[in-house]
Design a binder for these strands. Structure first.
Lengths: 227, 227
DNA sequence: CGCTCGATTGATAGTGATCAATCCGAGTGG
DNA sequence: CCACTCGGATTGATCACTATCAATCGAGCG
């Protein structure tokens, strides 16, 4: 039987929760079928809406976006997924959104059935999945509030800080996704995203350097994003 | 040891998933401490943000709202919870929002520690919690997209249909919460909620009768809410 | 070097927020 | 039973923010 070596996660202390979750996620790839992570090229589709939900994925390198499209062509990005993060966990038998690689991306993959079996056998696996879902729930809640009530600058400040913290960057943040992706993630048009980048730059909160964003004034950004 | 009598939930078929979840939720109250459900009067606080998260609740009768308030007084309703629904499951040691009774409400309550113990012993309990979280995730995702991109009429149509389906009503829906609550839930001002009710009424999609809403044209409402 | 696609900037219109003024209904006290 | 009161709901007028349409820019690439 496959075991996760995550003692720190078993005896979890509240204060270490997030750190231990991150640790545990590093072990997750060991559950994957004994393959190397699989490459998806930029904009390649990983799965589509309504596909049978047979696999759960973990990002190794790169970024993934999960996308919903409506009948009349409107698009929404449900989430971006950075290294260590898990996606593809569905409640029903079918995928509730599609998933695409934002840039060249390597993914670990585990059969849903297999994960379910492992979770039954190994409490640590079950806890990991549960903790991940709960963590996600908090994330989504935060975004929910911001989408409902925040203005463009607040949304973008949140986006930058959130992404930076998730990829573990403090200053120089690579933005692989296009303005439309960001817009569809934050409920803004790509033009507004663009203008808002400009606004933040003019205020001296950030600097733009190609596909990189420099977070010059985290304090002010945090003040904007703090909801 | 306490067991849930939810065979149908153990041998879950995809098509019956939602029905079986609902069935399983009906058994949830049996886990609660052997008290009667507890009454909270309208607008009474059940717990506040930052309180230790010691209990998980299930609505027996009534409606609960979970609320976030920001430093500068802005308010957001994270969710409404109707009978059978569970709330108060937190990822950290503290409550991430406050909870208040919308109207007179009866709640079952179970100690968090106890639920965690039960979930370890009884796979069905663990699955119930997991299924509930996944179900919730789908719900929230749907709302997320709507908040990001939907217009007022679409948001309100969604709100009405969603609430109706959750309380199991097809025509005559009781709206216990005020316009501000609905607004803070959908990311609208109370005035806009009011105006939008009027719009839907003028279009003949709904009728207003005191605190009740009659869903006259579900088809059109669905067309609006379908995102 | 010209092409192409995304990003940026500009001009305008639409939607909802905000401020403000009734309206309405339930509860209260005479 | 009825006038009174109070808070939420509705309606109105105006303003701010962002979507949309359109033009230009700019970098990567054949």
């Amino acid at each position: 039987m496959l075991h996760l070596n995550i003692a720190s996660f078993r005896d979890e202390s509240p204060l270490l929760r997030e750190a231990s979750l991150s640790l545990a996620l590093q072990e997750f790839s060991k559950l994957a079928s004994l393959e190397r992570p699989q490459l998806f090229k930029a904009d390649e589709t990983i799965y589509s809406e309504e596909d049978p939900a047979s696999f759960v994925y973990q990002v190794s390198v790169g970024i993934v976006r999960t996308v919903l499209v409506t009948g009349d062509g409107k698009r929404a990005v449900r989430g971006f997924h950075v290294p260590l993060e898990i996606f593809g966990i569905e409640s029903g038998p079918l995928c509730s959104s599609s998933a695409e690689a934002v840039c060249d991306t390597y993914l670990f993959r585990i059969e849903r059935k297999r994960l379910e079996r492992l979770a039954t056998d190994d409490t640590a696996v079950a806890r990991l999945v549960l903790s991940w879902l709960l963590f996600n729930k908090d994330q989504v809640s935060r975004r929910l509030v911001l989408l409902a009530r925040g203005h463009a600058v607040e949304k973008l400040a949140y986006f930058l800080l959130d992404l930076a913290s998730r990829v573990g960057v403090s200053q120089r943040l690579e933005i692989s996704m296009g303005r439309s992706d960001i817009g569809d993630y934050l409920g803004l048009s790509s033009e507004t995203v663009s203008r808002t980048f400009t606004t933040l730059r003019e205020r001296g909160f950030i600097a733009l350097d190609g596909r990189y964003v420099l977070l010059l004034d985290r304090q002010s950004l945090t003040a904007l994003a703090r909801w």
